[in-house]
Every structure is written in structure tokens, then in C-alpha cells.
């Protein structure tokens, strides 16, 4: 039976440990945005021994490239992008303390293994509900530090978001579970 949780980011080990596939989570607190180009930069920074623009310990990364913010709002439309493109980078980030990622779509075996090995979780938010999800974001600021090799990446910039009751679904938990439906093929 799936459960509902309210959690605060950054996440603690016990927050993640209790979650099972199908659980619903309302997440509040500070999370970070990064998609394709930012992930490449994060890994380059790690390889070069440089500091990352945000602490990985307990961190939640949201795969999103928001649309520009209208006046009076912190952010534009802000739904998840497809996660598999980040699969090559994700296990290393989990090994360094990343507790959760938010996206949409399937993760590869290496990521699912990394979730189990590092007590981490993969959440999905509803794809194509960017206007709706935007309402749960209270603040946003770009934290692209040029001295760390993060020039302005435009829609792909690293942002710090303050979210309140951001609606998520556990699709891959820290215990090897997978929520997605298996297609019923005839042969």
C-alpha cells in the first residue's frame, strides 16, 4: 500500500530509507536544477578537483530547464525533462552524497544500482504540467559561479530553488523497486 510523506530537502538517510515505489511525497526546502549541459560541467569540475556550486550531501537535483520568469514570479513554467540523458553522470553524484533526483521517464540499470548502493531515490513529477508545478516553487536564483567554470548556461543554468509541497512520486527506491508498467507485448 503506497503512503504519503512530507519531506524536507536536503534529505537525510532515514527520509530515503523509508520510501517505497508508488509512495507520494510532498517535498519542501532547497533543491537544485541541472540538466544536460550542467551535468557535464559538474563532472568536469569533479574531475578537476574543483568545488561544485552546491553541496552534494543530502542534495536533491531537479532535471528542469524552466521557461523565463514573468514579472512578479520566481520562475516560469517548470516541469521535469526526461531523465535517461543524465544516466551517465548520476551514479558518480550519488556516490558523493546526492540523495535524490527528480525527472520523468526510465532510469538505466547503473542508476538503479547506484540508488541501492547509496541509499538514494528517483522521483518523478508529472511531465507536461509545467505551469502547475511552477506554483509550488517559491524562489529561484541562478548559482552559476563563473570562477568554478559555470558560465551562464541560459535555460540549462544551475539554479537553487525553494519549493513547498512539490508533488512527487517514488519510481525507483533504495531497495531495487521500479514502478513503471511493463508493456504487454504479444510476443
Amino acid at each position: 500500500m503506497s503512503k504519503e510523506y512530507r519531506l524536507q530537502a536536503p534529505l537525510r538517510d532515514e527520509d530515503v530509507q523509508q520510501l517505497r515505489v508508488g509512495d507520494r511525497v510532498l517535498l519542501s526546502g532547497i533543491i537544485y536544477t541541472a540538466r544536460d549541459a550542467a551535468h557535464k560541467k559538474l563532472i568536469q569540475a569533479l574531475d578537476a578537483g574543483r568545488e561544485l556550486p552546491f553541496p552534494l550531501q543530502g542534495a536533491v537535483i531537479y532535471y528542469v530547464g524552466p521557461s523565463p520568469a514573468p514579472e512578479g514570479r520566481p520562475i516560469g513554467s517548470a516541469g521535469p525533462t526526461t531523465s535517461y540523458r543524465m544516466d551517465g553522470y548520476t551514479p558518480r553524484l550519488h556516490s558523493l552524497g546526492l540523495k535524490a533526483t527528480i525527472g520523468k521517464g526510465k532510469r538505466g540499470q547503473a542508476v538503479r544500482d547506484a540508488l541501492q548502493a547509496n541509499n538514494a531515490v528517483y522521483f518523478v513529477a508529472t511531465g507536461g504540467a509545467g505551469a502547475l508545478l511552477s506554483q509550488r516553487i517559491e524562489a529561484a536564483k541562478v548559482i552559476a559561479f563563473e570562477d568554478l567554470g559555470f558560465e551562464d548556461l541560459g535555460p540549462e543554468a544551475v539554479r537553487e530553488l525553494v519549493v513547498r509541497d512539490f508533488p512527487l512520486l517514488v519510481v525507483n527506491d533504495a531497495h531495487g523497486g521500479e514502478l513503471y508498467a511493463k508493456p504487454k507485448l504479444k510476443k
Binding site: G65, S67, G76, S77, G79, G128, A129, G130, A131
Partner: peptide
Amino acid sequence: GQLQENAALARATGLPLCQDT
């Protein structure tokens, strides 16, 4: 239900339906 709500919000607020325009 979420998609219905999203469509109504986008129409009312002028936010794009999806961030990937």
C-alpha cells in the same frame, strides 16, 4: 486531472503549458 488543471492555469496565467516550448 493534473493535465486539466495545468491547461486551465496556463490559459489563466499566461505561463507556457510546458517549459519545453
